[in-house]
Design a protein around this nucleic acid. Structure first.
Length: 254
DNA sequence: ATGGCCTCGGTTCGAGGA
């Protein structure tokens, strides 16, 4: 099976691209972030017609996550337990033997900002949630937009980005703490091209110049990681007309 | 030097993203 994640930056704008890309790449499961639409306008019918089962947790204008799957899903959670959050950023589903946690981690805006504190609090609550989840389930994937570039090699210009939001020490420590629960950054289990990124700013012709960051990830529990045969970033949709600023990350699982 | 772009809501500009 193929498991993919994609921050689409508005599903309303990107629906046709999701349908086109998934028809080509045929993932069995596709985690979407930043759907930016309330549940009552979610395009469930169009996706059903394309053969997808759907689960979604959205809100108007901001945030919002959804999972498309080629078979039935059980919805396990749509919020972090014990964390009072008005923002729809998490959706956990079970598909066959796979438990998928779809996350849209807060951006943080700037180091020291209120939103940065919220990001760190959110990540701490995510860690607690995943610790418990990993006690109950073996085949766990945590996929989505983490808004963290884990290492300098995930940053096109580490000096320019040093200490700023998305790469700061505290954010990287929070990411590492998730990995230390027993979750692997599956992309790094395999040889990868240098300068592999999943997001490029819309400005400055950043994509053409490959000035990007790798901030979209698929973490895997040890049992799941053993089944993983490869992970790649599919940059093609980033070059399409009116693209999302993120591009899909795809894992191959036996 | 410092912003460049895109999306949304709700109107034509500000907020948020990364």
């Amino acid at each position: 099976m193929r498991l993919a994640t994609w921050n689409v930056n508005s599903l309303r704008v990107r629906l046709e691209q999701v349908l086109a890309w998934s028809a080509e790449a045929h993932p069995a499961v596709l985690a979407l972030q930043e759907t930016k639409m309330a549940d009552d306008v979610f395009p469930a019918e169009a996706l059903n017609e394309a053969g997808w089962q759907v689960e979604f947790a959205g809100q108007a204008a901001y945030n919002g996550v959804a999972v498309l799957a080629d078979g039935p899903m059980e919805r396990l959670a749509d919020a972090l337990p014990g964390f009072d959050d008005e923002q729809q950023r998490l959706l956990t589903v079970k598909i066959r033997d796979l438990v998928l946690v779809n996350v849209y981690v807060p951006n943080g805006q700037a180091v020291g900002a209120d939103k940065y504190a919220y990001k760190l609090d959110w990540l701490a609550a995510l860690k607690n949630y995943l610790r418990d989840l990993l006690k109950e389930h073996e085949q766990v994937a945590v996929a989505g937009d983490f808004n963290i570039a884990p290492e300098d090699r995930d940053v096109h210009d580490p000096k320019a980005w040093e200490g700023s939001v998305l790469v700061s020490e505290q954010e990287r420590a929070a990411f590492k703490a998730l990995c230390e629960l027993g979750l692997a950054d599956s992309f790094r289990l395999f040889d990868q091209p240098e300068q592999s990124y999943s997001w490029w700013d819309y400005r400055q012709a950043a994509f053409r110049r490959n000035r990007g960051l790798r901030i979209d990830h698929i973490l895997m529990s040890q049992t799941l990681a053993k089944r993983c045969k490869g992970v790649h970033i599919d940059v093609a949709p980033r070059a399409w007309p009116r693209p999302s600023d993120h591009t899909p990350v795809v894992a191959e699982i036996d």
